[in-house]
């Protein structure tokens, strides 16, 4: 039941984040979405995810505030209001048609198909010795995925350095 309230709050905060004119206010509304997502993970029995989401959300808030603060922000006016809105809504409608066919294939909420993870739950402790099955899966059974994640972060950091560097800039 709490998850419904949290989701409705997240939708309201997301609409506020997109519609507020002031950019710093909208960044803070986005952070409200992320923090309630962290609470939702806690309600959905995923404490590891809640901690990770909390840390990531704070870092994201710092990054976005760094991007928006100390900039003089000219007011961005929306031109061609009708055409833009109608074409966007048409795009969302096409997306919803595909979702309508996909949603029938999903398992019912509350009864997951646990064909692989049943094995992990049964044998996780005896094979890895970790009491927390999530870390056992992340570090032992699916260790290559964690390696790929690290590679992605490394590539992203190199990309940030390449984008933000000052020397060698052609003026």
């Amino acid at each position: 039941m709490e998850i419904y309230l949290l989701l409705i709050f997240m939708i309201v905060a997301a609409v506020a984040a997109l519609e507020i004119k002031d950019l710093i206010s909208s960044v803070i509304a986005l952070s409200a979405v992320g923090l309630s997502l962290s609470l939702a993970f806690l309600v959905l029995k995923a404490p590891n995810l809640a901690i990770t989401q909390l840390v990531v959300e704070l870092l994201c808030l710092i990054l976005l505030i760094h991007a928006t603060i100390k900039k003089d922000l000219p007011l961005v006016k929306d031109g061609r209001w009708l055409f833009n809105t109608v074409s966007t809504l048409a795009f969302v409608a096409v997306f919803l048609v595909f979702i309508y066919f996909a949603l029938k294939e999903l398992p019912v909420f509350g009864m997951p198909i646990m064909r692989v993870s049943g094995e992990y739950l049964d044998k996780g402790f005896s094979l890895t010795g970790a009491a927390n099955i999530v870390t056992a899966v992340a570090l032992k059974f699916r260790g290559l995925d964690s390696l790929g994640e690290t590679v992605v972060i490394f590539v992203s950091a190199i990309g940030v350095l390449a984008v933000m560097r000052k020397v060698g800039k052609i003026r």
């Binding site: 959905l44 029995k45 995923a46 590891n48 995810l49 990770t52 989401q53 990531v56 870092l59 994201c60 990054l63 976005l64 997951p112 646990m114 692989v116 993870s117 992990y120 739950l121 996780g124 099955i133 999530v134 870390t135 056992a136 899966v137 992340a138 699916r142 995925d145 964690s146 790929g148 994640e149 992605v152 972060i153 590539v155 992203s156 950091a157 990309g159 940030v160 984008v163």
Partner: peptide, 23 residues
């Protein structure tokens, strides 16, 4: 117990999302 595989994968996804936002 809830599904541990999904949680483990989503933990990867969250961190990759942070890398995306950084870039």
């Amino acid at each position: 117990m809830v599904d541990p595989l999904v949680q483990s994968m989503v933990m990867t996804t969250i961190v990759i999302g942070l890398a995306l936002i950084m870039l």
